[in-house]
Nucleic acid binder design. Structure first.
Length: 283
DNA sequence: ATGGGGGCCTGCCGGC
DNA sequence: TGCCGGCAGGCCCCCA
């Protein structure tokens, strides 16, 4: 379940169980996810304390006291669930293992964190914390959309030469980190921009207007605990609620949410992915 | 060179 | 009920 708001929601849900805690025991139940696990992963994790739990783009990074960081990617179907720790006012017991539980962390303090990923598009790797940005998966990722380096000037400059449609450009992780298919659709709807428009044909001011919209959509989604599609859940099993605020994604055939717009939400394929938009008010 | 499609996997849903 | 096609929130890689 993985765009930036969902990953951030997962990271926050793991803080109590993992940050500042020692990894007492790790079960690695298969040799790989999308790629092979790094050599001796279990030994390099066990007994290490997690100094900080961070997020970069759609990746979670656990900084260890060994100078390494554990990189975790949820792919399409990756989930993390926490059990056995104090969650609110009561203690959750460890539930029975489930199909596709690939890596299980038993933490100091009694929490168990289980990584489950049916499709195995997810990934785990170990990297040197001080060389994070040169890791092959992170080295060409663009600025964080909620950070200071992401502004109208940057985005307009980056999209200036783009021959690709704005939808494709915003999905490009090298331009801005963390946006995926859902939130790009929602952002373009709010901006009133047709997803087919060539990025380079949009005025600088229209491109600049995307920046606060991107920040708002992502912030609101994080605030709502992410989106729960296909039964995705937070680490404590609760559902996020932002899917109820989708205006176009998954709403093919429904009337456009824009006041006084008579349009109908339409779906079409764009570079192999579904795009939802209103042809009437997105220009 | 970059934009688009294929591929990686499993699960689920709708239609016949 | 069962089988089949289509679809799914990501992202690397190859090809034109």
């Amino acid at each position: 379940m993985p765009e930036l708001p969902e990953v951030e929601t997962v990271r926050r849900g793991l803080l109590t169980a993992m940050e500042g805690k020692t990894i007492e025991k790790v079960a690695v139940n298969r040799p790989d996810l999308r790629w092979p696990f790094p050599p001796d992963m279990q030994a390099r994790l066990q007994g290490r304390r997690i100094l900080a739990l961070r997020r970069r783009s759609k990746y979670i990074l656990a900084d260890l006291d060994s100078g390494e960081s554990l990189l975790i990617h949820l792919g399409m179907s990756g989930r993390m669930r926490v059990s056995g720790a104090m969650l609110g006012d009561f203690v959750h017991a460890h539930p029975a293992p489930e199909k596709h539980d690939h890596v299980v962390f038993d933490m100091e303090g009694g929490a168990r964190v289980t990584f489950n990923d049916a499709r195995r598009f997810g990934a785990m790797d170990l990297l040197q914390t001080d060389a994070q940005e040169s890791h092959w998966l992170l080295q060409s990722i663009g600025p964080e959309p909620l950070g200071n380096q992401f502004d109208g000037t940057y985005l307009a400059d980056r999209l200036n030469n783009g021959a690709s449609p704005i939808k494709t450009a915003l999905l490009d992780q090298g331009i801005v980190a963390g946006l995926g298919n859902i939130y790009v659709c929602e952002v373009l709807f709010r901006a009133g921009i047709n997803p087919k428009r060539k990025a380079s044909n949009l005025s600088r001011s229209r491109i600049s207007s995307l920046v606060p919209i991107i920040r708002d959509v992502l912030s609101e989604a994080i605030e709502a605990g992410g989106s729960s599609l296909r039964d995705h859940r937070q680490t404590d099993g609760k559902l996020g609620y932002f899917q109820h605020d989708f205006k176009v994604y998954g709403r093919e055939g429904q009337p456009c949410a824009t006041p006084d717009c008579a349009g109908t939400v339409t779906r079409f394929a764009q570079s192999g992915r579904s795009t939802f938009y209103c042809p009437q008010c997105q220009r």
